[in-house]
Each structure stands twice: as C-alpha cells, then as structure tokens.
C-alpha cells in the first residue's frame, strides 16, 4: 500500500491542542500541542516523569485533561470513553503488556477482530450477538472459521504463529509485547500509541517490533512511539516531539532534535549510547 503521507492532500489525523493535566498541585502535562499525520511515526521522547504516558492516557481516553483537547480528523476525542476512542480508530499498548489471561494467543486476536468487525464499540445490540448464540449454529461456525483464519494470518505476520494455541499466561515477556502489538494492529487503527514497545526485548524481538511499526506506517497508520531506547526511536521516527517536566521543549526531524542543545541538556546526552530497553524500569507509570 502506498503511504498516505506521500499524498499532499492528506491532512493532520490526530491533533493535540493545548493539553494540560494537573494532579493536585503537580502539572504532569503542560500546554502540549502537536499533530500526528497518517503514515508517519511520531516519536515522543523525554526523561521519566516528562508526561509521556499521561499524554497517551489523555489521547486514548483513560485520563481527562484539565485543559485542552484532542481530535481525530476533526472529531473531538476529549471526554469520550476509552472504547469510544478506540472505535474511532485510536488504540494503544501499555508499558506493562496487558494480557487476557484465560484466552489463548489466537483468541486474544479474535477479541480484537470482533471489536473491529462491528465498526463501533463491542458488543453490539443483544440481537446481533446474544440471540445468534441460540440460533444459526452453522452460520456461526463459518464465521468462527473465517475469524480463526484471519487471526492466524495476523499471528504469522507478527512472527508468533507458533504460540497461537498457547494460553497467554504461559508467554514470555517478549512474546507478550509482540502479541499486544499484533492485537492492537488487528483492529486496523488510524492512530496507534505504543508505550515503550521495545523495553525488555531481545534484539530479534526489537527487529520484529520495528518491522511491524514500519509496516503499520506503510499502511497509513499514524504511529505515536514513546521509547527510551533513543537510538532506535530516532532511527524509526519521521518526526520527534520532546517533553520535559510536562512541557514540549522541541519538535522536528530526528536529527535536528538530536542535536538541539535544549534536548541534549534535558535528556538525550547520556541516553544516545544506551542499548535498547536499558531504561525500562518494569513498572506501569501512569504519571510518567
């Protein structure tokens, strides 16, 4: 597929305008604005506590901003529930992968596919889901087979086809990351928020995640990438936004940002040589 970014008529997909988040007296995000366009990878950098994850929480509907707004192609996202934001095309992954224990890897993908199928939040009205559980068994079996085939294709693309029948609680950390990314891509989002997708991964897995990010970009997805592995982030991002203490201190092409004295001073200096995942602290930091 041609990257929509190459099309000059493509407009901003996600617009973050003047977003501020206060937790009591603490300002976690301070008047941050930027746009993310279809078919680009927008890196979001900053030291721990810079407000990156809080920003992701605002965009994905987890956290309501104190001020400012987020919109997707002109549709306001602010004030909507997480599932509504997702149904409009914005999905995300988490610093600590959220697994659906009790389901197999394939079934986890099938949850995402069902959510996508109805084009709105899932489940649909009872007559579209509950009633068919009692009738139309043959038709349902065909639909289940089709769902299974699609899920298998997604798992193959993500490089974890061998784990399809395993319960998610048996996965290694790296496999969890790959599954969470595959699950997010299965809903065919317009905007994908990835929160430290490389941390805790081995080099092969990092390669697989970066390949998936690039493939998503080719498919026209706007990928927002929070990552402490600065080298990898600068290599994959088309543009970078840098946060420090909740404020945006720089925005631009990766190389321009990497040489910005303000950014070097605030963050990048001792991070450039760090190996991927070296800054992972293993904890979900909602106030990061």
């Amino acid at each position: 597929m041609t990257a929509p970014a190459a099309n000059p008529s493509v407009t901003a997909t996600l617009e973050v305008a003047g977003v501020t988040v206060r937790f009591g007296g603490v300002v976690a995000v301070d008047d941050v604005s930027f746009v993310a366009r279809t078919g680009e990878v927008l890196g979001v950098m900053g030291p721990n506590g810079a407000g990156k994850t809080t920003l992701f929480n605002v965009i994905s509907g987890v956290q309501r901003p104190t001020a400012g707004s987020v919109s997707l192609a002109g549709t306001a996202l602010t004030g909507r529930s997480v599932e509504n934001v997702a149904a409009l095309g914005v999905t995300r992954t988490f610093q600590t992968p959220v697994m659906f224990w009790g389901l197999t890897v394939r079934e986890s993908i099938e949850v995402a596919l069902a959510a996508r199928e109805f084009g709105a939040t899932y489940p649909p009205a009872p007559h579209r889901e509950l009633v068919p559980c009692g009738i139309g068994a043959a038709q349902r079996r065909r639909a289940e087979t089709a769902l299974r085939d699609t899920a298998d294709a997604i798992l193959t693309r993500a490089g974890i086809a061998a784990t399809a029948d395993r319960l998610t609680e048996s996965l290694a950390f790296g496999e969890e990351r790959l599954l969470e990314l595959a699950r997010a891509l299965a809903v065919e989002p317009t905007v994908l928020l990835l929160d430290e997708p490389l941390s805790g991964l081995n080099p092969d897995e990092i390669g697989a995640v970066i390949a998936s990010i690039r493939a998503a970009r080719e498919d026209g997805v706007a990928v927002l990438l929070v990552e402490h592995a600065v080298g990898e982030l600068l290599a994959v991002a088309d543009r970078v936004v840098v946060l420090d203490h909740g404020r945006k201190i720089a925005e631009g092409a990766p190389q321009a940002v990497a040489t910005d004295p303000l950014v070097i001073d605030a963050y990048i200096g001792d991070e450039l040589d760090a190996p991927a995942g070296s800054s992972f602290d293993g904890a979900q930091d909602d106030n990061d």
Binding site: S60, S81, V82, E83, A86, A87, T91, R92, T93, F94, V98, M99, F100, V111, A112, A115, R116, A120, T121, Y122, P123, E180, R183, A184, A186, V187
Partner: peptide, 8 residues
C-alpha cells in the same frame, strides 16, 4: 486492554 481495542 480490552477497552483500548473497542470493547465496551
């Protein structure tokens, strides 16, 4: 995680 996929 499920809500982030559109599950209500």
């Amino acid at each position: 995680g499920a809500q982030a996929l559109g599950v209500d």
